[in-house]
Write a protein that binds this DNA or RNA. Structure first.
Length: 308
DNA sequence: TTGTGTTTTATTGCCTCC
DNA sequence: GGAGGCAATAAAACACAA
């Protein structure tokens, strides 16, 4: 590998001396793209001449940074080339050259590989390995970037989700409050006299419910339904009234289900009664987590279909 | 100087494509 | 089947604190 630099030892010594000239940090990277100045170079647009880089640096070629730290005599060079193949890092200039080439095209066609190897005095295999490792590093960096993007996206979504959750809790509390109000008024309404109840025309829902109820139940249904009609509108006007004595102290509604006096109903009758009458008036009790699924649609919750 | 963690160069084995 | 790419890994080189 090391022998690929070629040249006699004395020439190499000169080269090694010149390597001590540091690569100017402020060197314009544009100088890396002067590939037209390399007559031997007719490859792809991404190819460059390493000589151009070094001339811009004011230094000649140098390939082995391993010599940078030594007082290199010929003996050292001999020793260097006679020792078994050791891993040697590329010089700063070589790496810069490869980096610029990589920026232009991160894949390596055979002719470009050959040309780069020639220009840098490296084995084509080394060029291939360098590009391979460079692609791996690039991929890792890219993954880190992608991760950061996803992370921030997740964070903002989580904030939105948490806010929605809070909003949902608030709305649930409101709904429960309204429900309680409603039921309380229904209960109060059921105590109205039959006379009052019968003096009013039963609303549609009551009639429909009555169709499926026994005759004995009709009066009850009518009574409830009539009250219902009135109560809803008034309940809506004073939706939030947590001071109501019927509102559970812990803020959770104590009862969601209308409880008519069913003492004179058989179990079957009770069932029928519930089925025919309750659905429009009963609000399902909201359990924790009922609305915690952000993907659940409104239609998933029968609750949202207000009876009126 | 030395121990340790990181970076870079290189190898190996597997896979895909022509 | 050979060439080339990639992932995993080894190992040398390097940086740096103690």
């Amino acid at each position: 590998m090391a022998s690929s630099t070629g040249g006699s030892n004395s020439n190499l010594s000169v080269l090694l001396q010149s390597q001590r000239v540091p690569c100017a940090a402020s060197q314009s990277l544009e100088s890396f793209y002067l590939s037209g100045s390399s007559p031997s170079f007719l490859g792809s647009r991404s190819m460059m001449s390493f000589e151009d880089v070094h001339q811009a640096n004011g230094s000649t070629r140098s390939f082995f940074r391993a010599f940078d730290h030594e007082d290199n005599g010929d003996d050292d060079v001999d020793e260097y080339f006679h020792q078994p193949e050791k891993k040697r890092r590329l010089t700063v200039d070589q790496v810069q050259f490869l980096e610029k080439s990589f920026e232009l095209e991160n894949k390596l066609e055979p002719e470009r590989k050959t040309q780069l190897a020639k220009d840098l005095g490296l084995q084509p295999r080394q060029i291939a390995i360098w590009f391979q490792n460079r692609r791996a590093r690039w991929k890792t960096k890219q993954l880190e970037k992608d991760y950061d993007v996803l992370q921030s996206s997740y964070n903002s979504l989580k904030v939105d989700y948490d806010n929605l959750l809070k909003e949902n809790e608030k709305l649930k509390a409101e709904v429960n409050l309204i429900t309680d109000k409603l039921l309380l008024r229904e209960k109060g309404g059921s105590e109205l006299s039959d006379k009052d109840a019968l003096s009013q025309e039963p609303p549609k829902k009551a009639i429909l419910a009555a169709d499926s109820a026994s005759e004995g139940e009709v009066s009850k249904i009518s009574t409830v339904a009539c009250c219902k009609q009135d109560e809803i509108s008034s309940a809506k006007s004073d939706i939030v009234d947590s001071d109501s004595p019927h509102y559970a102290a812990d803020g959770v509604h104590s009862s969601c289900v209308f409880e008519p006096d069913q003492s004179d109903l058989s179990q079957d009758e009770e069932d029928n009664f519930s089925k025919s009458l309750l659905p429009p008036y009963v609000f399902p009790k909201l359990e924790d987590g009922d609305y915690s699924d952000p993907h659940a649609s409104f239609e998933d919750h029968a609750f949202w279909s207000w009876p009126y």
